[in-house]
Write a protein that binds this DNA or RNA. Structure first.
Length: 206
DNA sequence: TCCTACAAGAATTACTAGCA
DNA sequence: TGCTAGTAATTCTTGTAGGA
């Protein structure tokens, strides 16, 4: 632990052992903010630091949500496939011998890039988080369509642009606008103090 | 293994057109 | 008049191939 981090935790001992805080401080840009705040603590610098941490913390939660969604979808997809193949066995599923191998194991897998979401037609069918689903519903039809094509059909902006008969830039713009809208709606759902880096009552003035 | 060049996709900027 | 959605031009990012 370096001197900056030690000094920080001396002032804010309640944040010690918090991995999110450690990770936040480890980034050069955030480190500068912390350093600056510790040297010359002011209310505006504290607010700035809190805002930076809120944004960072939101990104962590959003990434965590997406990764857990992918995990659950992959597990469900696997269960679905297994259940289906049990009900509808194919000739290739028959066992070859005593060792448990089947004919399908002998077939090379040229389609190793099969994606679970392609079994859905819209992103709405994939969303399990209620807040995210409600936020998604507030998007315009075009925004929803572009997100569907990008995340369900896994098309690039260029392919979507060709399909919709608009430019790649227009797709990129609509895409990012939709993501910004989702993000802002989800952020509004956050409690005021939930993502604060430093609680106001524990502000250090020296 | 590192460096460089190149390609493709995505993002940004500046501007225009249509609409309420 | 301001907002939204579009475009062209440009820049940025990332992956990859090839050579030293």
């Amino acid at each position: 632990m370096d001197s900056l981090v030690s000094e920080f935790y001396r002032h804010y001992s309640h944040l010690k052992y918090n991995k999110a805080v450690d990770s936040f401080i480890s980034q050069t840009e955030n480190r500068k903010l912390v350093e600056d705040f510790l040297r010359h603590p002011t209310a505006s610098k504290e607010d700035h630091l809190n805002e930076a941490f809120k944004a960072y913390y939101f990104d962590i939660r959003f990434t965590s949500y997406v990764s857990s969604s992918l995990y659950y979808h992959s597990v469900n997809f696997d269960k679905h496939i297994r259940k289906y193949s049990e009900r509808h066995p194919l000739t290739l599923d028959n066992q070859i011998g005593e060792d448990g191998g089947s004919y399908v194991d002998l077939v090379p897998d040229p389609a190793s890039d099969i994606t679970p979401f392609t079994m859905y037609s819209t992103l709405m069918e994939c969303l399990e988080n209620e807040e995210l689903l409600q936020a998604y519903k507030t998007l315009t039809d075009k925004q929803k369509h572009i997100l569907d094509l990008a995340y369900v059909q896994e098309l690039s902006n260029t392919e979507i642009a060709r399909m919709l008969g608009v430019s790649q830039q227009a797709v990129s713009k609509t895409h990012r606008k939709a993501l910004r809208r989702l993000k802002s709606i989800l952020e509004k759902g956050e409690s005021i103090n939930h993502g604060n880096f430093i609680r106001p009552s524990q502000r250090s003035e020296g």
